[in-house]
């Protein structure tokens, strides 16, 4: 924890739909947002196995979850290019389908 929000490691800038553009150090990463969680109670273990363990590793456009933990605490879906690290748009995860 030698560096942090005031350290010299500021890199990604993430456009929080609620708070505006912020340093990535205010966020926590939450994984692949293109995966759809099986509905609660889904009894098919294979569906859960697929959801929990199997990930694509795309080069290029990627959707991922980030939570603005030091801000509004909202989970976002962020577009990020895994090849260039370029950040695109973000929308609140709970407003699914309406970015």
């Amino acid at each position: 924890m030698a560096t942090g929000p005031t350290g010299n490691d500021g890199m990604l800038r993430i456009p929080c739909p609620h708070c505006g553009e912020r340093d990535y150090t205010e966020f926590r990463y939450g994984g692949d947002a293109s995966k759809i969680r099986p509905p609660h109670g889904t009894a098919d273990a294979r569906a859960w196995q697929e959801y929990v363990f199997l990930f694509d590793n795309p080069k290029g456009a990627h959707l991922e979850y980030w939570q603005h933990v030091l801000g509004c605490r909202q989970w976002l879906v962020l577009e990020r290019d895994t090849a260039t690290n370029a950040v695109g748009k973000a929308h609140l995860a709970r407003s699914q389908g309406s970015p």
């Binding site: 924890m1 205010e26 030091l70």
Partner: peptide
Amino acid sequence: FAQTGVQHACV
């Protein structure tokens, strides 16, 4: 106002 962090703690 802005919600942000000081030394990893939210403010």
